[in-house]
Nucleic acid binder design. Structure first.
Lengths: 326, 326
DNA sequence: CTGAAAGCGCTTACAG
DNA sequence: CTGAAAGCGCTTACAG
């Protein structure tokens, strides 16, 4: 069923049918009626591929995330989708699992003109090749600071947030504060570690212990915590850079027969619903996840409409939520 | 940068360039070299829209979920993506939030030929209009039994699983077993409630209490449990149809000063990582989420390749995991 | 093994 | 207000 057939049915040209469908130009009421009737009668649906090919505009954006099962990530994606929907855009979600091949494969959608732009929530420092693939296409990095190039980004001030957490723990009298961090190829992981180190240094604390989780999962958090507990000097506080990791830490601590926060205080990150589900409930740094997602879309759409816009780096507000764990 | 330019650069016809790109037909080595060189030199990327329009095949599938933040849902989506990737397909994810307008808008991608087929994880009984929109297009319902029409489905036997849970609780001496269910427009919600009722009846238990959560969230679970606790006769066991709901119930019970499983036993559903994160850890019905997702894709691709295949209804195995909560 | 040509289903100047 | 025609960038019989 094509626009041709509708034109024939309605007794007009394809141009007129197109004008009716797109509300462009003006069409004599009588003809509009006939076209509408023909569309109705034949249950016609325009072929979007043809339209997109012709207009070189797809109204779709690609979203690359490393792990959709991470609740923070899921919230950001919801924000992205909301704002995209509001502007007539669709999202194409790709869960890369930080896998190079999957990411590369997804990026062919960009170069193949299937999408108008891309939002990423993944680490790119290790992957210069991907950066090259994206080239000059509209691109926003989400919840991951981009300090170079023409890519925009939106997130929070990770150093400040991290410093706040460590200072909070020091004020509570904690002496041996450990860090459960993510892979350092993530910029935010480097920034939070920098905040951790700077405050400890500033306060004359020499004790350090950092474990790196291979992914933002419950199991990785538990494993990291178990390692920390096996050390000669046990930490009396742990700062995990994700609520999911912190949840894993809670279990390891409980299984070691220790109590929280007395033996060990625990602080998470992200402020996801998960932080309220575990016990003790997690103190955490709440990120405005929905807003981050929405802002990422508005930056991207602005770039799509105005390709000459310079890159923007937006910092959103965060806040510390104090609960029973620390 | 189009195939035309490459042809000119390489001094061959566009047909030859196309043959090289698609490894179809045979091309004299010398010409192949030249084409490859031209592609390399100009960093050419084929326009996928044009290809898809021409071949009437997009190698994309639409996935409609009601709430991607639900961990079970996220797992299924991972399975879908894995299998799709393996077969050269991409997924277009749409988080409908059970919103009619969003669902309808997403379905234009189907009628607009942007995708080759659709996998849904949402309730459709309330939405005959959407069913009409999908029409005869390849469609698989995931984790939701479809008992009519030409739509295939893959899930577990919800009645059996539910019956098993209730029988387990009865065997443990529970007298007043409550159910925290989801919206009955979901087929699985109706089936699990049927299992609940049948076993209680069979065992001569007259006591019933059912609460309906408006969505599969922690808060909805907590609210439902609070309502159950306010009743004159408190339940001594609760079966929630999702781990997320059960997690909310755990908090409500703990906040009421009751202990688990002594005062109240709790059983969840899905077998997500969340069930291990909460305390007490949840007894739950584990669904093979990744496999469900994978199977959904293979059913769908089969339907795409062989449109005359009759609808299939696949039941996967589930298993009960016993933990501290019940 | 290769190329000229038709055609996928649209949109959009352009001329009237 | 309307239509004939060009063209978006591909693929694929068809003829040679």
């Amino acid at each position: 069923m094509s626009i041709q057939k509708i034109a024939r049915l309605a007794g007009v040209s394809v141009a007129t049918v197109s004008r009716v469908i797109n509300h462009s130009g003006s069409v004599k009421p009588h003809n509009r009626e006939r076209v509408l009737a023909a569309i109705e009668e034949s249950n016609y649906q325009p072929n979007l591929l043809a339209r997109q090919l012709r207009t070189a505009r797809s109204y779709m954006i690609l979203v690359l995330v490393s792990n959709i099962a991470n609740p923070f990530c899921a919230e950001v994606v919801k924000g992205i989708e909301e704002e995209a929907e509001k502007n007539g855009y669709r999202i194409l979600l790709c869960n890369t699992g930080s896998d190079m091949a999957r990411s590369r494969s997804a990026l062919t959608l960009l170069s193949g003109k299937i999408v108008d732009g891309i939002i990423t929530m993944d680490a790119f420092s290790k992957l210069p090749e991907l950066t090259t693939m994206i080239g000059q296409a509209p691109w926003v990095q989400c919840a991951e600071y981009a300090d170079e190039g023409s890519v925009s980004c939106v997130g929070i001030n990770d150093i400040d947030a991290s410093q706040y957490v460590i200072q909070h723990l020091i004020n509570r009298g904690r002496q041996r504060i450990a860090l459960i961090n993510h892979d350092l190829s993530y910029k935010y992981a480097r920034l939070r570690e920098r905040g951790y180190n700077s405050v400890l240094e500033q306060n004359g604390h020499g004790w350090r212990a950092v474990e790196y989780a291979s992914e933002l999962s419950f199991d990785a958090g538990r494993t990291a915590m178990e390692t920390l507990l096996r050390a000669d000097e046990r930490p009396d506080a742990v700062f995990a850079v994700s609520d999911t990791l912190a949840a894993g830490a809670l279990l390891a601590i409980a299984q070691a027969g220790l109590t929280m926060p007395d033996d060990i205080a625990v602080v998470g990150f992200d402020g996801t619903p998960l932080a309220e589900m575990v016990s003790p409930q997690l103190s955490t740094v709440a990120q405005p996840s929905l807003q981050i997602g929405r802002k990422a879309v508005s930056l991207l759409l602005n770039k799509i409409d105005n390709p000459d816009t310079p890159a923007e780096r937006v910092m959103m507000d965060w806040r510390f939520i104090e609960r029973a764990s620390a």
